[in-house]
């Protein structure tokens, strides 16, 4: 992953977050939550800054980031695609839909396309089981998706 340079105003906001929590090592998880909200993900540079502010080794920060699945080190794409793998969607062929996204985009779950346009993830049940299988792109819900729809959906987004 190439190193992305964070703009100074964002760094200042990150330092404010750390300060609001008293730069306390015990506040690490809360700080990471807010940092991820601010940046959309937790790149190396952000983790290094947090470690320095809290006076803890960056390996510890990385340990926490990699332990909790909520935290991510991959930036989300412009169009974040989530395929529901809940029971209803699964039995109605969600896996095949997911495979088609994988095939066309050339990325795996948890990854982002090199141009930053699409990212792929799976989730469990969005409460729209009547529409199974469901795909969520940004805030928009696509229902009764079959693998054959995938190409068309992606065309729409371009």
């Amino acid at each position: 992953m190439s190193e992305i340079k964070i703009p100074q105003n964002k760094i200042d906001q990150l330092l404010d977050i750390c300060n609001e929590h008293g730069n306390q090592p015990g506040e690490l998880i809360n700080i990471l939550h807010k940092a991820q909200h601010l940046f959309g993900y937790l790149p190396q540079e952000v983790q290094r800054i947090v470690a320095r502010q809290l006076g803890i080794p960056v390996s510890k920060v990385y340990g926490v980031v990699t332990f909790y699945s909520f935290f991510t080190m991959t930036p989300k794409g412009e169009h974040p695609i989530s395929v529901c793998m809940g029971t209803a969607c699964y039995v109605r062929g969600a896996e095949k839909v997911l495979d088609e996204f994988r095939r066309i985009l050339g990325i795996n779950v948890g990854e982002t396309t090199p141009d930053g346009k699409y990212s792929l993830s799976s989730l469990r049940c969005v409460g729209a089981c009547g529409l199974a299988p469901v795909v969520l792109i940004g805030e928009k819900v696509y229902g009764r998706v079959v693998p054959g729809d995938v190409e068309k959906i992606l065309k729409e987004l371009e």
Binding site: Q44, I56, P57, V58, S59, V61, Y62, T66, F67, S69
Partner: peptide, 20 residues
């Protein structure tokens, strides 16, 4: 107090490693 090594990842794939 060097802090080069920490437990990273979770479950079966967890390991002891430097950051990143």
């Amino acid at each position: 107090t060097v802090g080069a090594l920490a437990a990273v990842n979770r479950g079966f794939v967890s390991t002891i490693s430097p950051a990143f």
